[in-house]
Write a protein that binds this DNA or RNA. Structure first.
Lengths: 141, 141
DNA sequence: TATTGTTATACTCTATAACTATA
DNA sequence: TATAGTTATAGAGTATAACAATA
């Protein structure tokens, strides 16, 4: 088994490379706003929804609960998110965007969409659609 | 713009999620061997090749040069890789696998291939092939 | 007892820049 | 002067487990 051939067609690595490349330029943009990658994922995940528990959020932003918990402290301090006890089960904490957080999230999402197009310019519209469809199927969503 | 709709179809996030999911189980396997994710990328990248400069390697393993440099110290200490000055330009350092490193790399690559199939079972063979092809085109390889 | 979330600790990785050797 | 790589430092993320509150 040749290593070159192996790793060049090894799907997890292709995915990691593609994720790295297609977010590199936008991450520099995030930095300009003083927003970290994890914060951006939290903002984008919560945008348009009605709030999520810390647990659910941790799964969606691909971060451990303890890391997220500390970032939420910081984001709450900046007035971007709010936390309140879950209505049914008071052990859970429901995280929602504040108006300020939602405004920032919308602003960043707009910029992200521009970068997305630019950073995936090697694909035409049909290929991009197909790629998304395959990824969604892979992820079961 | 709905957040749910936005982030669910935002390609960099789909890629990050897919990369995360398709490597999660194998990373636990790596841990069992005492191999870190970065080490694994170095091993797999060098497998079957004739060695690479630290700079080129850093790009391929998606890590900063300084991080890689320190990991290489450790991997050299474990007898997995060797470093020698470049023949043409003596500023460069050429990294190659030792026999021990190559054996470990082949072993891990074999296991990785099994996990790859398992972790992408939601796609059939044709879809997997198409996904790889689109990713390769996106990456320009 | 089990689960949700927070907090604590030690460790790893990253960003940045200074430094060395070579070109 | 510029480049390849190493080293140094501070900051950010992760793994792990202990802990509090609720179920």
């Amino acid at each position: 088994m040749s290593g070159k051939i192996f790793f060049r067609t090894y799907l997890p690595y292709l995915l990691a490379q593609a994720a790295h490349r297609t977010s590199g330029t936008f991450h520099r943009e995030l930095k300009r706003h003083g927003v970290r990658e994890l914060d951006w994922r939290v903002l984008a995940t919560l945008l348009g929804g009605r709030g999520k528990s810390v647990n659910d959020l941790a799964v969606e932003v691909l971060a451990p609960q303890s890391t997220l918990s500390r970032r939420l402290d910081s984001m709450a301090g900046e007035g971007l998110i709010a936390r309140r006890p879950g209505p049914a089960d008071r052990r859970t904490v429901i995280v929602t965007l504040t108006d300020k957080g939602a405004a920032l999230a919308r602003d960043l999402a707009h910029t992200a969409a521009e970068f997305e197009t630019r950073d995936t310019a090697a694909l035409d519209e049909e290929e991009r659609r197909k790629l998304k469809q395959l990824l969604e199927k892979l992820l079961g969503t």
